[in-house]
Amino acid sequence: MLHIYCPHCGEYREEEEFHCAGQAHIARPLEPEACSDQEWGEYLFFRKNPRGLHHELWVHAAGCRKFFNMTRDTQSYEIKEVYKIGEQPSVVAE
């Protein structure tokens, strides 16, 4: 079970208070109408799904209810860092 540091609350809490909302840094296209079906499909469904470092979006659902990003190793489950929305990771997945 993951032990997660909420960057908003400033403390470690149990995974049960959080949930993962998928891959981080997927920006909604600014002009959806300009997207082809192909591009819109990719925005909606296609994901990196790496074995190794991954940037994810999490929410402290049963806590402060704020979203934040997490860089986590999907093989060892080590959390490398958490950072707020709008910030960039210092440990970067390839």
Binding site: K48, N49, T74
Partner: peptide, 18 residues
Amino acid sequence: GNSGVLAKMAGFELPVES
């Protein structure tokens, strides 16, 4: 369990999460 890893070798992404 490895589809994403193999797809990456072939240079594309899949609508799949493991």
